[in-house]
Design a protein around this nucleic acid. Structure first.
Lengths: 154, 154
DNA sequence: ATCTATATAATATTTATTATTATATAATAT
DNA sequence: ATATTATATAATAATAAATATTATATAGAT
């Protein structure tokens, strides 16, 4: 498990270097935080964690780096309600369940056969001309367990 | 075709009335605009169209009404890049292809069998406990035909 | 060691959205 | 019909996320 996380970190780091970006301590720390996090943090969440190691870090730096990681497709942006962006360091095939009340984001399992059977079919079906797909999103909006209970007992 | 659009409009209008909301001229015009539009307009886009008929309309009124329509699930919110919300008056089963460069949103066809075969399976598989799903989202991010060409010729 | 490019920090600005307040309209009761 | 109450809209102000700008610092190349 730990080994998985580390190889993921190494993947990103080597890609950063290969593409000619420099690996500053701040950048490395940001990469660590998002790649190891399971909680789909916002830029401010990342910023708050960073401040422990780098109290002088600028929020702008966080945004810049998260955008960079997003542009090289090593983190995925998730847009929930209340227009704020969350970042997912797990770029493997999966969807998200987003609670419309509390904003909680839960991973939804999708396996390779799903991709072959559904996503791939949709892409082939809908994009015959030169349309280049490099990412997908699958969301289920609703009420999470806790919020569902609350609503039910109103 | 025209008949389809009108029945859609009537559906929304009667739902508005049934739920006890009043049908003001401004509200009716907003409903018309979003239900007849195929271009996934933003709040400001709707506002600009509205001003032809209602020059004194307030942007806040547009936001309030679009939120209302969204809350009763008669329009769907689409979150693209560059953090702005777009509104889709077509609530039938379909996904979106979103161009990461120009922001263009194109409908992606999904049919009932897809829903039964994929969405339903994912819901059953992932949400065994009391998690209430009332909406879904399916997006393909990439480059549209035009932007793809531009990028290719760089 | 100097020069150049890139990254970060501090600050200011923009933009979308929401909140507040006042006015106007609509619905209901008198 | 008029008064009363609730809801909708308009005008304005405020918030908050993200971006732009500028200055400083760091890293890599010459």
């Amino acid at each position: 498990m730990k080994h998985q996380v580390n190889s993921r970190l190494n993947d990103i780091v080597s890609k950063i270097k290969k593409m000619g970006y420099s690996l500053t301590p701040q950048r490395l720390e940001i990469i660590k935080i998002v790649s190891e996090s399971k909680s789909h943090p916002s830029a401010v969440d990342v910023y708050d964690k960073l401040r422990k190691a780098y109290p002088m870090i600028s929020l702008n730096t966080v945004y810049k780096n998260l955008s960079l990681l997003s542009s090289i497709h090593e983190v995925k942006e998730i847009r929930t309600l209340q227009n704020s962006v969350h970042y997912d360091g797990d770029i493997s095939l999966h969807g998200h369940a987003i609670c419309e009340k509390c904003g909680r984001i839960i991973d939804v399992k999708i396996d390779e056969s799903d991709f072959k059977g559904f996503f791939d079919a949709k892409i082939k079906e809908n994009f015959k001309e030169n349309y280049y797909i490099n990412n997908y999103g699958l969301e289920f909006y609703g009420l999470c367990g806790l919020c569902y209970k609350e609503t039910a007992s109103d």
